[in-house]
Nucleic acid binder design. Sequence first.
DNA 1: CAGTGGTCTAGACCACCAT
DNA 2: TGGTGGTCTAGACCACTGA
Lengths: 239, 239
Amino acid sequence: MKSYQRIYHEIEEAILAGRYQPESFLPSENQLSTQYDVSRDTVRKALASLVANGYIQKIRGKGSIVIQREQLRFPLSGLTSYHELQRAYGYDSTTEVVSLEKAIITPELAESSGFSVGEEVWKTVRIRKIDGQKVILDKDLLLVKYIPELTEENLTHSLYHYIESDLKLAIAYAEKEITIDNLTPEDHLLDLHENDINIVSVKSRVYLADAAQFQYTESRHQVDKFRFFDFARRNPSVY
Amino acid sequence: MKSYQRIYHEIEEAILAGRYQPESFLPSENQLSTQYDVSRDTVRKALASLVANGYIQKIRGKGSIVIQREQLRFPLSGLTSYHELQRAYGYDSTTEVVSLEKAIITPELAESSGFSVGEEVWKTVRIRKIDGQKVILDKDLLLVKYIPELTEENLTHSLYHYIESDLKLAIAYAEKEITIDNLTPEDHLLDLHENDINIVSVKSRVYLADAAQFQYTESRHQVDKFRFFDFARRNPSVY
DNA sequence: CAGTGGTCTAGACCACCAT
DNA sequence: TGGTGGTCTAGACCACTGA
């Protein structure tokens, strides 16, 4: 474990546990550098991640203040898998695999997915149940090139855990787009309300550490169950 | 201008102009440090911002690759004001101020806004028209403590420009929440479709560089005009 | 093996804040 | 004025990539 990551996690843990109270100041960078016996630059790296993740705000000439955050404002934005969210929030949730098959990218699929025509993909549809209600429909395309084997078991349990821990692939970043769509026939796999006419569509292209796209997902959410949190900084460290 | 910011902007500009092509590599950190006559650490700071903003992906042992991005995927997530978006996208858009008055935070308002009971705020409602259609309803609360004067002029033109350039306040970060709501009577200030039953609600709490909240906004968007892009990294530089 | 990015150091100077 | 965070340097060593 890198030393600045260790420091990040210790401070994060202390904030979450309330040992560093909201609106109070962290020890100064010089104090932390003595305390952890590392250089000031290493402390600054740890603090930079705390800033990026919305734990602290640095104030020049004063110090680093702990930000008051709402409960459970964890990375609902960002790139976090469904199972990670589920565990973080303690949902009572299950996944049902509707279909799983190999397919070849057609010109129409290429357009929306970002994959090239002719590439071989796993094509799968899953339903997420929360408290017994079918509320999310997940439609995935995964490149066979990167994920040669894929079972219902992988899809029911954590797909990202399988990809990262078993296949040792490094998931790096994603582009997401949220829109409100009209219902399609396929959406009736979900437990919709009688008068529902809209559904939330979250489309993602997910990339590995070598900048190659390996996944395209469309996640369709029942409107009244949908919630998206974002922590945004103005001019992310630049301008 | 800080030297790493200058480098950031020069490289960003070169990427946007196509002088650095997607899927090609930037010069190495050592080359850039010679080229710009700065230390490698300074180059690395500039590159870190390019990574955070989704322009490049660093690959250890190989270099920094330029990411292929869709057109116009600018910070629609993040903390960008309506007028900045409008300018970036070239919308034909106007703003109409429905109301502007001072108010005192009540217990109910405190709950949703995050402000304390008894604080004095500007309370304003605006309508955003795009191509002549009234599609967004903006409801704002702004602390009088930080913004003593506020005119219709400020609200029609860029509020953030007024706050940053004229009042010299540093806007730092925001917490946002996106949900799909049922229509309220107030929403009929917009040009809704006959069968619309939902609206997209984006609620934001906006904070200054000293970590003090100065604004609460609810932005209500006609569903078929709503679009939200996000660029997300897994484990933002930490784990 | 040489070249790349990743981590870490020790020190310098600056801008800002409080006293 | 002393302490804070912000910028920048020069150098070191490591882990990884590709030839």
